[in-house]
Amino acid sequence: MHPPSTLEVGSQIIPLMATLMLVVQLLLIAQRMLLTSIRLFAIQSLLLAGIAAVVAYYYNAGHVYVVAVLTLVGKVIFLPWLLTRLVHRIQIHQDTEPLLNAPTSMLICAALTLLGYSVTRPFTSLEKLGNNTLAIALALLLTGFFLMINRRKALTQVLALLTVENGVMLAAVALTTYGMPLVVELGIFFDVLVAVMVLGILVYRIRENFDSMDTGKLDQLKG
């Protein structure tokens, strides 16, 4: 048995954490309790922050540390807190039956992941560390979209949007270690932050006006 070099360990840990992000995403798809979903999202973001930190450590890239810290503060602590408070305020704890049942959605997500993997195959060589995290990033994006379509409650849709954003961040961290300027990453981050806060208010308003946060009801707004 030869002792693994540190880089080798790094290249083991990053795909592992990325895969765990995907696992959390799948659990999110099977989960209908809103509070648990929010916690799952927090775990996923924590993993993302972890990946960013590992990448930053191996490449000595200071600005990636900033991303890690921002993710930690913003998506692991602040947003979950905000959404949890929202859940308590609107007094709805469970999502209604999704369009497709859990086993079917699971299989669809597996297929989407496969799609993600096969699409990103040509780009494998571009990556520096933890090969093929890009595939997982794309899979997160696709399954996040699916989640958004499959659910009815505005809050779960917000969570789905956030996981999509997690996917984008993962791609940014994995693919363009030196590439994407900090400004862009910050831009994306604050964009989403504001979007979620606006959506949170919107959710509250929908609930106030329709006694439900089923976005299906929005079609009543048509003149």
Binding site: P15, T19, L22, V23, L26, L27, A30, A102, P103, M106, L107, C109, A110, T113, L114, Y117, T124, N131, N132, A135
Partner: peptide, 16 residues
């Protein structure tokens, strides 16, 4: 089915 999809993902990962 979650277990099945996990196993399928495991398989996909060996692939990559």
């Amino acid at each position: 089915s979650t277990a099945f999809v996990l196993a399928a993902l495991a398989l996909l990962s060996t692939f990559l």
